[in-house]
Each structure stands twice: as structure tokens, then as C-alpha cells.
């Protein structure tokens, strides 16, 4: 049982007009096996929360803490956070020209596991995970995310989730840009990882659509850089009906 604990997190970014505070005191605790949906309007800071936990250099932590089983995550380098068991499925996965998916996955798995995976079992492992996500085998030879469709990029993110087996996954708008079939395949992938590994999930989304496939235990409404309401799955139904209007003050 692991715990990811975010306490009173404040985060700023530097803009041309000076520093701008995006997160204004976020409190959230996620335990293994739990799925927390973070829902909120565009621009509320949901992605900033995701990237700050992963350690993107653009975001400056100005207050608060993030710990994984009591260990300070904010002190870790980006790769150390991944090795500690955090995974961020990005909304816009980055293209890395000239680096094949095969090479990338193997390098990442080697780093996370602390030793190179054995060739024989590894090839099978990758093939199986790709097949489960309906990914063509020629995918492995392509450059990371280069020329991938929106759906392919998201499947590639979930493929990494399956292979890297983190303790906690932050899924940042994984549902955006997916058609119904792709959404189902991607969601099944997430559920499969969770059933195999007691994964804790922070599911960031704007829409309730993905929650039909990935059932949240908790729903948090995010607005203006903090969590403004919390509840169970029924809160998502209310958002579906009424939108975010009541949380957004002019």
C-alpha cells in the first residue's frame, strides 16, 4: 500500500508579465488502488498539477509538499520521480525524431527496473501489451510519437503505463481527441493495469465521458488552482448535468 500525498501545493509560472500563480493550495491524498477523478474547466490548473508532480522545469513550486510514502517528491529529479513509481500520461506526448519506440521502451524499462529486461521475455511482453491495445506491430519501429495520430499517441502512453508498472499514474486528459473505440481500448488498458497492480490513479479530465469506462472512487472539482468540491461518483453526474458554472466566479 502506497500513498501519494499533496499538501497545500502552490505553483507559479514565469510569464512575460511576471510570475503568475497557477496552483493556490492543492490538497489531495491518493492511495494504491484508488481512482481519483480531477475535473474542472479549462485553465483551472489541472495540467499544471500533473506536470508539477512529474517535475517539469517550467513550473516553480512556491509552497507546500508532494510526498510518496513520506519521501519528498519535489526534491527528486524528473527521472527519479519516475523510478520512485510516478507516471504521467501526457495530453500532448512529445515527438522524439529518430528514436524508435522499441529503443525508447527498452531504455525506459531498463532505467525503471534497474536492469535491462531479458531480451526473450521482453519482446513477448511488448508484443502482448501492444496487441492488447490494438497497436500494429510496425509501431515499434517508428520514431517516438512522430507522425502518430491522436489516438496512437494516447495508446502509446498507456503502453508505457503497462510496461513501466508505476505505483501511481496521472492521466492528463487521456480522453481528449479519442473516438469512442479508441477511448474504450485506452480505458480497458488502464483498467487492466489497475487490476494487475493495485495502481493508484489521478484521472484528469474535462468531460465525464471517460468515467463511464474508468470508474472513479472519488471526484474532485478543480477551479482556479485548487480543489473546490469533493465527492463520490455521483458528483460527476451532477457536473455532467450542470457543468462548471457554479464553480467559476467572474
Amino acid at each position: 500500500m502506497s500513498t501519494l500525498e499533496i499538501k497545500n501545493l502552490h505553483v507559479s509560472v514565469t510569464t512575460d508579465a511576471g510570475d503568475k500563480e497557477i496552483l493556490r493550495g492543492v490538497d489531495l491524498t491518493i492511495k494504491s488502488g484508488q481512482t481519483h477523478a480531477i475535473m474542472g474547466p479549462n485553465g483551472s490548473g489541472k495540467s499544471t498539477l500533473a506536470y508539477s508532480i512529474a517535475g517539469h522545469p517550467k513550473y516553480a513550486i512556491t509552497g507546500g509538499s508532494v510526498t510518496l510514502d513520506g519521501t519528498d517528491v519535489l526534491e527528486m529529479t524528473v527521472d527519479e520521480r519516475a523510478k520512485a513509481g510516478l507516471f504521467l500520461a501526457m495530453q500532448y506526448p512529445v515527438e522524439v525524431p529518430g528514436v524508435s519506440v522499441t529503443n525508447f521502451l527498452r531504455t525506459a524499462a531498463t532505467a525503471i527496473r534497474g536492469e535491462a529486461p531479458k531480451v526473450r521475455t521482453w519482446v513477448g511482453e511488448v508484443k502482448e501489451a501492444m496487441a492488447a491495445l490494438n497497436m500494429d506491430s510496425n509501431f515499434a519501429e517508428r520514431s517516438v510519437n512522430e507522425g502518430f495520430s491522436g489516438g496512437e499517441k494516447k495508446r502509446h502512453e498507456i503502453l508505457q503505463l503497462e510496461l513501466l508498472k508505476p505505483k501511481f499514474a496521472i492521466l492528463d486528459e487521456t480522453d481528449s481527441g479519442l473516438d469512442v473505440d479508441a477511448l474504450r481500448i485506452v480505458s480497458e488498458g488502464v483498467n487492466r493495469v489497475k487490476s494487475n497492480s493495485d495502481l493508484g490513479i489521478m484521472l484528469i479530465t474535462h468531460y465525464t465521458r471517460i468515467l463511464r469506462y474508468i470508474k472513479p472512487d472519488f471526484v474532485h472539482v478543480f477551479a482556479a488552482g485548487r480543489i473546490v468540491e469533493e465527492g463520490g461518483p455521483e458528483l460527476a453526474d451532477k457536473l455532467e448535468e450542470k457543468g462548471y458554472a457554479e464553480y467559476v466566479t467572474a
Binding site: A54, G55, H56, P57, T77, V78, D79, R81, A82, K83, F87, L88, M90, P93, V94, V96, V99, N103, F104, T107, A108, A111, I112, V144, Q160, L164
Partner: peptide
């Protein structure tokens, strides 16, 4: 950042790029 967020250390990430 993308490579490092997958556990790949900074020097190896640079080499890969």
C-alpha cells in the same frame, strides 16, 4: 522532459535525442 519522465536519466536522454 518526456524521456526523463519515463525514468531515463538526463545524460542518457540527451544522448538518445
Amino acid at each position: 522532459f518526456y524521456l526523463e519522465s519515463r525514468g531515463i536519466p538526463a545524460d542518457i536522454a540527451r544522448r538518445l535525442v
